[in-house]
Design a protein around this nucleic acid. Structure first.
Lengths: 228, 228
DNA sequence: AACATTAGTTATATGCTATAACTTATGTGA
DNA sequence: TCACATAAGTTATAGCATATAACTAATGTT
């Protein structure tokens, strides 16, 4: 990498870092290119040398958030790969919640409603989204294919029109992935997603005294249902 | 109501209506007092006679959204009150999803991440929030208290530190409400909330071919677990 | 040393929220 | 009925945002 490219990269990183900081303080909407530039000691329009628009910056942040979450999950999965499958999955699911609480802004960027005026570029963000789901699928695959755990009973009476649509990227990632495994993954993901969203955005505030314990309890129940 | 107050109310309603329309077209962030005023044939600042600020307008919309959702649920609950408890709950949960899909903006206002720059006034919105939960609790109370259904097995081994915190308004609403019933309600609500959020915000797009069937299937499973 | 590229600058258009100061319409009490 | 108060609107303006245009200074490259 040339000297110039290196400095450019540093600048880009600083912009993204400040953007995150700004959002952490004032919410996702408080992002202001102008303010970032000013804070970095340069004039507003200069930022447009690095990001084409506000939306472009947001898109970059979203992609990074996806990757960071995926990495966190993968790392946990790798660290506990030699443990029993249930223990491994538990740790991954705990990491999921932990990451969401530790990075609320990034989590909002990923799963929140579309940002102020930001018209999402799905072409950019969609492929990355699969990465988050991948580590969980991998663990489930291990359980049901390698270790031959019996499939959960709730798979038995599924209506025939209910089919899983595997995205192209997911097909590439794991061509041998049975739809049943994906279905189980989806069920589990939806379940924990609701909990985390409601906890994170404070819509349940006073309902549960100890969200962490509640979450733990629910994932145990979930894994029971999964025969893990 | 005086003649003036009547016209004032009409104006306020028109503002809110246009605000909703605007958000429906361009997302929750595209709300512009200026544009609304212009569209109504008056100048920007005139709107401030009716709403103190942008946030005040948003707060009003949130409160209305809560009430609308609560009404929809209550209405369904009332219509199926003479049916078996499982059928009644099923209809209410279906209404929940239906309403979310039919009023995506209002649903975002309620459950989405905080609006652009909008610093929520919890004092105003919080009490209304309980209303949404109330119809579901009422049905569960009927099941477990009036009809003496056995409590679900997942209640058995709850850790002692996991206690339900009933809000003041909820205590008032139903003083005899056992914590177990509330706990069951929470578990169910979290479960379906995740599904709806992910479907609504399109984060699962290509994963499930038929979200309606999936949802139906999951609520049946949920009610099985509830012993309904 | 000449040139091209990159990175910055200022000036400006446009749109937003919000406030201030002023004007006109509407309703009410003496 | 008329004077007055209140309500509802107006324009002007401050301040901040995104974004573009046109220009300049710095940095590499040939």
């Amino acid at each position: 990498m040339t000297r110039r490219a290196k400095f450019r990269q540093i600048t880009i990183d600083e912009i993204k870092s400040l953007a995150r900081l700004q959002m952490a303080e004032g919410g996702t909407a408080s992002l202001s290119l102008n303010a970032i530039a000013k804070h970095m000691g340069m004039s507003g329009p200069a930022l447009y040398r690095y990001f084409e628009s506000r939306d472009a910056l947001i898109t970059a942040l979203i992609v990074e958030a996806y990757e960071a979450l995926a990495n966190a999950l993968e790392e946990t999965a790798a660290r506990f790969a030699d443990q029993p499958v249930r223990d491994c999955l538990r740790q991954v699911l705990l990491t999921y919640r932990r990451w969401a609480l530790d990075h609320p802004i990034d989590f909002q960027l990923i799963f929140g409603n579309p940002i102020p005026g930001y018209q999402g570029e799905e072409k950019i963000t969609a492929p990355t989204a699969g990465k988050v789901f991948a580590p969980i699928l991998k663990i489930l695959q291990r359980a049901y294919q390698q270790e031959n755990r019996p499939y959960p009973s709730f798979l038995e009476n599924l209506p025939p029109q209910l089919q899983v649509r595997l995205s192209h990227s997911m097909r590439e990632f794991q061509p041998s992935l049975p739809e049943k495994v994906v279905y189980i993954g989806i069920v589990g993901w939806y379940h924990i997603h609701g909990m985390i969203m409601l906890e994170l955005f404070n819509h349940i505030q006073p309902l549960i005294s100890d969200p962490a314990t509640f979450y733990s309890n629910e994932i145990e129940r979930l894994m029971d249902q999964m025969n893990l």
